[in-house]
Design a binder for these strands. Structure first.
Length: 745
DNA sequence: TGTGTTCGGCTTTTT
DNA sequence: GCCGAACACA
């Protein structure tokens, strides 16, 4: 027991040993909150308060869950037979629903398929396409997801989104309803449904609720600041027979409001659980004093936060380095050169490059490759999003659930087997007419007593052999479930028997060799599911539920990732790049105060990842699709007192200008920057300030458009009637429209 | 009718 | 720099 509790400070010890009733742990960055959860679980087990499997810990990513599990087992000498239940909300719900979903009485069976974001977007596109309407699928997806995460009806959700007129609303509701029906028919659930359906189940079925609440005797939630109302509802239901819930979080690090995380969950915890004990962890063990001060200087500009002071006994440390690059290439060059120098000094140094958006990674990757440096990139196109991986898993999904029409469509002609658009359209018509699934339509069309003069004989033959293939794969899969390696043998069989491997081998394309290697890796991943009870199912679920952050490999020295993906991690050396207005804070967040505050918290998260050394860089200009933009330095940068920064720029930097002349700052106004860049390109404009400014439409204004209705101007390129406006129309998304086609609202 | 190729438009953050 | 639509060809 002693060794479990050793090395905890007073507050941590209290958090660990306060086992009964609701506990709120407000934990600053680097204060050891994840450790507290691990030790607390170990303590509960060692004290015999509960069996390991009766302890539920919810983490933000699968990766974090895995690490937590290892940590706990290490603390316990691994003597215990059962394992604590550690997973993400989504995995937890998937597990519950696999057992219980038939109780919902909505026609779902335990063979249901999980649709990831891509799948659900494709499903929405299918529906919109059939309707010939011009709704933006991504925007629609956001609405549908938003309503589900808040636990309200879509109609109600749309009420709260101003500027959507009645017509748009009807359209959106119609498509959304069709979407939900198509999921139901496919026996499929999207990410949000996993939570929603679980909550419904527990809410309306007393015995199931009590069963699970009794089962999970102690519940712990990590990263509580990023939970949404639906997740909160789930927590409430799971604690209905007891109040043993310990939530850990930091309101300063809430960065998922765009996914409907609600900071009030943490701010109002004491209202939801009146008997709650509140414990604050305020000592930071991670960063130097200098790094913490910079983080503090930025976050203190947020109005909406719980007062908290984070302190450290760590040394003062190096100053935070500041670098003003000429352009994005120069920025990458500087970062990679510096990384090389750091590694020469200390070959095992762990270094992270953090950026706001995924596409910023490209230049750093190129530069690192050129220099022959190995790196790991987290996110972007995650392994499980690659086409070849999605296609093999689509085969598995179809085998397990032939109703899954979306997956079926995906593979019906991969590899090419003579079933093209025309045939597929015909099948879909049959399916709609007879109210059957796509798979049943195939069965119908290929049955002997049917005659379809609309389809040429060769199409029918192609369908017949496809039908036979799927049925053959199903039989083989069933057989293999008794083999010593049921999962990996099945995956291997699919890759071969579908002709997929052959297709890749015979193409001669070098990219296809890489795809082949990816399939090899998929096969490797499947091996670890061979000895699980429902291995194949779990393997397929996992492929849908793993996040991009899960691919983080601690062994790699250089890691590239978004700030979001870096949450919960720490690195001795951090490069925070692209600190420019428009990029970070992102221009889409610059309109609203609450979005700006979230960006600021994101900045706080980025800075507090650094342990010893932090570099902050920005580029004076940056190219994005052929156009060069001059970017003002991030306003977060301006919030850092200049005495806290050490300027190592190779050119006269923005910061140095700021030091010599405060007025200089103004020349970097957005307008000035645009004018300058126009001048450099030789584009003339009226030198008179007022005529440049005289156009009445500006970013942030609302405008009316004949077709799309009311929308907000996000960006303006050019001037006068021919200015190109980027406008966000609710329900339709962003459109680029010339100024003369809209009027000011 | 199916397959391969080229061109244009867009690019926040993610379970 | 990536995906999807549109087009040319078999």
């Amino acid at each position: 027991m002693k060794h479990i509790l050793s090395n905890l400070n007073e507050a941590q010890l209290q958090a660990v040993t306060t086992t009964e009733g609701p506990v709120l742990v407000l934990a600053g960055a680097g204060s050891g909150k994840t450790r507290v959860i691990a030790v607390r679980a170990a303590y509960l087990i060692a004290e015999r308060k509960a069996k390991p499997h009766n302890i539920l810990a919810v983490t933000f990513t699968n990766k974090a869950a895995e690490e937590m599990r290892e940590r706990i087992l290490k603390l316990l000498d691994q003597r215990n037979i059962s394992k604590p239940f550690i997973s993400t909300f989504h995995s937890l719900c998937a597990k519950i629903l696999r057992r219980e979903i038939s109780h919902l009485q909505e026609g779902y069976t335990s063979e249901f398929t999980i649709y990831d974001t891509d799948d659900s977007l494709r499903a929405i596109k299918n529906i919109i396409g059939a309707d010939e309407k011009k709704l933006n699928p991504k925007v629609l997806q956001r609405y549908i997801s938003g309503a589900k995460n808040l636990g309200i009806e879509l109609e109600e959700y749309l009420e709260e989104t101003p500027q959507i007129d009645q017509n748009q609303k009807c359209e959106i509701l119609k498509v959304a309803e069709k979407y939900q029906k198509s999921l139901n028919a496919a026996n499929a659930l999207d990410f949000d449904d996993l939570l929603l359906k679980t909550v419904q189940l527990l809410k309306y079925n007393d015995s199931i609720r009590e069963k699970y609440s009794d089962f999970f005797k102690y519940i712990m939630i990590d990263e509580y600041q990023d939970t949404n109302p639906m997740q909160f509802a789930l927590i409430k239901l799971l604690t209905s027979t007891h109040d043993n819930v310990c939530v850990v979080g930091d309101d300063n690090q809430s960065i998922y409001a765009f996914r409907h995380a609600d900071i009030r969950n943490i701010l109002d915890f004491e209202k939801h659980y009146p008997k709650a004990k509140v414990i604050k962890l305020e000592q930071n063990y991670r960063s130097t004093k200098n790094i913490l001060s910079v983080a503090e200087e930025i976050i203190k500009n947020n109005k909406n936060r719980k007062p908290k002071r984070l302190w450290t006994e760590n040394e003062e440390g190096e100053k935070v380095y500041y670098f003003n690059a000429i352009n994005a290439e120069d920025e990458a060059r500087f970062v990679v050169t510096r990384i090389k120098e750091i590694l020469q000094e200390n070959p095992n140094q762990k270094i992270a490059v953090l950026y706001r958006t995924n596409y910023q990674s490209r230049l750093f990757e190129e530069m690192l490759r050129k220099q022959g440096l190995r790196y790991r990139i987290v996110g972007a196109l995650s392994f499980y999003q690659r086409a070849e991986i999605k296609e093999i898993t689509a085969y598995l999904k179809v085998i397990l659930n032939p109703s899954d029409s979306l997956s079926l469509e995906r593979i019906i002609n991969v590899p090419p087997r003579g079933i093209g658009d025309a045939t597929l359209n015909y099948l879909n018509q049959i399916a709609i007419k007879n109210e059957i699934t796509l798979w049943d339509a195939i069965l119908l069309v290929t049955s002997e007593d049917q005659f379809h003069k609309e389809l040429p004989q060769r199409s029918i033959q192609a369908l017949k052999s496809f039908k036979n293939l799927i049925e053959y794969l199903q039989k083989e899969t069933a057989k293999l479930q008794n083999s010593p390696r049921p999962v990996s043998d099945t995956v291997s069989m699919i890759i071969k028997e579908t002709g997929y491997e052959k297709m890749l081998l015979s193409s001669g394309d070098t990219d296809d060799l890489a795809r082949l290697e990816n399939l090899e890796e998929l096969l490797n991943a499947s091996v670890s599911y061979d000895d699980r009870e429902n291995g194949l199912r779990e393997f397929v679920d996992n492929a849908s539920l793993v996040s991009s952050a899960d691919s983080y490999d601690e062994a790699e020295r250089i890691t590239l990732m978004t700030i979001h993906a870096a949450k919960g991690l720490e690195f001795p050396v951090v490069f925070l790049v692209g600190m420019e207005n428009g990029l970070f804070p992102h221009f889409r967040s610059m309109n609203q105060e609450k979005d700006m505050e979230e960006e600021r918290r994101l900045c706080y998260v980025a800075i507090t990842r650094a342990m010893k050394t932090l570099y902050i860089t920005h580029a004076t200009e940056r190219r994005s699709n052929r156009e060069t933009y001059k970017n003002e330095p991030s306003l977060f940068l301006k919030e850092i007192p200049k005495t806290m920064l050490e300027d190592i720029s190779e050119i006269p930097s923005w910061l140095s200008k700021q030091e010599t002349d405060k007025q200089e700052l103004k020349t970097y106004d957005f307008l000035e920057a645009i004018k300058k860049s126009l001048l450099e390109k030789g584009i003339k404009f009226a030198s008179d300030e007022s005529s440049f400014e005289s156009q009445s439409i500006h970013p942030g204004d609302y405008v009316l458009h004949k077709r799309y209705g009311r929308g907000m101007v996000l960006r303006k390129d050019g001037k006068g009637k021919d200015a190109k406006l980027t406008i966000n129309f609710p329900g339709f998304g962003q459109k680029k429209i010339l100024a003369k086609f809209v009027e000011k609202a």
